[in-house]
């Protein structure tokens, strides 16, 4: 944040520009109170935009306004326009963005702007992935950053061909090792493996590999919804049912000895596996969920049970 006050009216460099003041109705409702500095800067921005001026001083003006109010989306768009018109170095602009991105990581404009600058760069800048790692180290679940990273994967075709260092899978694994409950990282894993628009040739054992991966992660934290959801998602994609993980899920559940129940998600998956041929056990699991292990969703579990009962009666 630039703390020095900038006064355009007193600056010779701006003497030829007539600022355009904000037109405000007389209505009191939702009227806007500005600071003088912000109000003056935006008056000069309106003037510059009206004459479509793309210049060095216009660049400085946009930076000044962005520092005061990074949520002002028009100013970002105008800045991108200037860069493209004047063919300014986009990689340098990315460097400049680093501080504001780290200070305002949840700002929509920062990431949309980054994407628009990145799309005039032909190859992935070497510092980009380490920059994103830095942002994600501050908040590993930032939705804008992940959306941007998906765009980056598609744009520069960063689809993983191995789990080696530098690959998306390697990076995701490092995040999940740090926090196995990071749902964003799980989602990104699914995206980089199955999210390609073009139907690509998947290695035959991709399902086995991912089922094993999810099971290993579940074992480190059996009550983690994200890993179980991923496992269920992979099983669904494989279209072979969930029977193959029954034995695995039973490690965390015992219907005979409740003291051995360590995961409501395992109960849930087992109830699904048992719903067909072992419906009594399925109902027992669902009762355990609604009475003891997830009572907040009792109605949902009882609904599942009613489906089983209805199938039995039919």
């Amino acid at each position: 944040m630039n703390l020095t006050k900038i006064n355009y009216e007193a600056d010779e460099k701006w003497a030829d520009v007539v600022p355009i003041l904000q037109q405000e109705g007389e209505n009191s409702l939702a009227q806007i109170a500005y600071t003088d500095e912000y109000s003056q800067a935006t008056s000069y921005l309106r003037a510059v935009m009206a004459s479509n001026e793309k210049s060095e001083r216009a660049m400085e003006l946009t930076e000044h306004i962005i520092n005061m109010n990074p949520a002002h989306y028009t100013v970002w768009l105008y800045r991108a326009d200037i860069i493209k018109t004047l063919s300014l170095n986009p990689v340098k602009e990315l460097d400049k963005l680093e501080a504001i991105s780290l200070n305002h990581p949840k700002n929509f404009q920062v990431w949309g702007y980054r994407q628009s600058i990145m799309s005039i760069i032909p190859t992935l800048p070497p510092k980009e992935l380490s920059f994103l790692a830095k942002v994600l180290a501050k908040d590993a679940k930032n939705y804008h950053v992940w959306a941007y990273r998906q765009w980056l994967v598609e744009y520069f075709s960063l689809w993983p061909t191995s789990e080696g260092k530098g690959s998306e899978l390697f990076f995701i694994d490092s995040l999940l090792t740090n926090d196995v409950r990071n749902n964003s990282a799980w989602n990104h894993r699914y995206f980089v493996l199955f999210g390609r628009n073009v139907e690509s040739v998947m290695p035959l054992d991709i399902f086995t590999q991912e089922i094993n991966y999810a099971m290993a992660k579940i074992d480190t934290a059996p009550q983690n919804a994200s890993a179980w959801n991923y496992l269920k998602g992979i099983l669904r994609k494989q279209k072979k049912g969930a029977k193959e993980v029954e034995h695995f899920a039973l490690q965390y559940v015992s219907l005979e000895d409740e003291s051995k129940i360590r995961s409501s998600h395992a109960l849930d998956l087992l109830a699904e596996i048992w719903a067909g041929e072992a419906s009594d056990k399925a109902c027992q699991a669902l009762d355990l969920l609604s009475n003891k292990y997830d009572p907040v969703r009792a109605n949902y579990w009882q609904y599942r049970k009613s489906l089983i009962k209805a199938a039995q009666a039919a």
């Binding site: 939705y143 992940w146 959306a147 998906q150 749902n183 964003s184 989602n187 990104h188 699914y190 995206f191 199955f194 999210g195 959801n229 991923y230 269920k232 998602g233 992979i234 669904r236 994609k237």
Partner: peptide
């Protein structure tokens, strides 16, 4: 639509 049954901001984006 996502693998977990939810929806995201664009195809492939995390359910929210």
């Amino acid at each position: 639509t996502n693998f977990d049954g939810g929806y995201g901001a664009s195809p492939g984006a995390e359910s929210h």
